[in-house]
């Protein structure tokens, strides 16, 4: 897999940072890697930072949604953070409101909400 996505463990939170040039193959790889990481370690929450993404189309939106569902089955909540205004407007227009994911403005806020919900 290329370095189009980076995974970090911070205590019991898995941080994922996605780069703008990620392609379809990379994101499917990411789904796989992420599921394994969540299952292997005792991860309470997944925080996916998409602030670098100028585009989230229906394919990426759907994979992100599936990611959240997989994490939920493995007992972790998934936050998507840093979505750009243009991306949010475009996704709503496409009818993709990602109800299966929690959202936060940035990583700090997401981690705080994860702690509060415990």
């Amino acid at each position: 897999m290329s370095d189009a996505a980076a995974l970090f463990h911070v205590e019991d939170v898995l941080l994922v940072s996605i780069r703008d040039d990620i392609d379809d193959t990379d994101i499917l790889d990411l789904q796989e890697r992420l599921s394994e990481s969540v299952a292997r370690r005792d991860v309470q929450g997944v925080v996916i930072d998409i602030s670098d993404l100028e585009i989230v189309d229906t394919f990426v939106g759907r994979v992100l949604g599936q990611l959240a569902k997989i994490a939920k089955l493995l007992a972790a909540d998934t936050y998507i953070v840093g979505m750009r205004p243009a991306v949010a407007m475009t996704l709503v227009e496409l009818g993709m409101t990602l109800p299966e994911m929690r959202t936060a403005l940035n990583v700090t806020q997401a981690v705080r909400r994860l702690r509060e919900s415990r």
Binding site: G82, M83, P85, A88, V92, T103, A104, L105, Q109
Partner: peptide, 12 residues
């Protein structure tokens, strides 16, 4: 409602 959906996607 669409505005509300977009606001939620942004994390607010």
């Amino acid at each position: 409602l669409r505005t509300a959906a977009a606001v939620r996607l942004m994390g607010a």
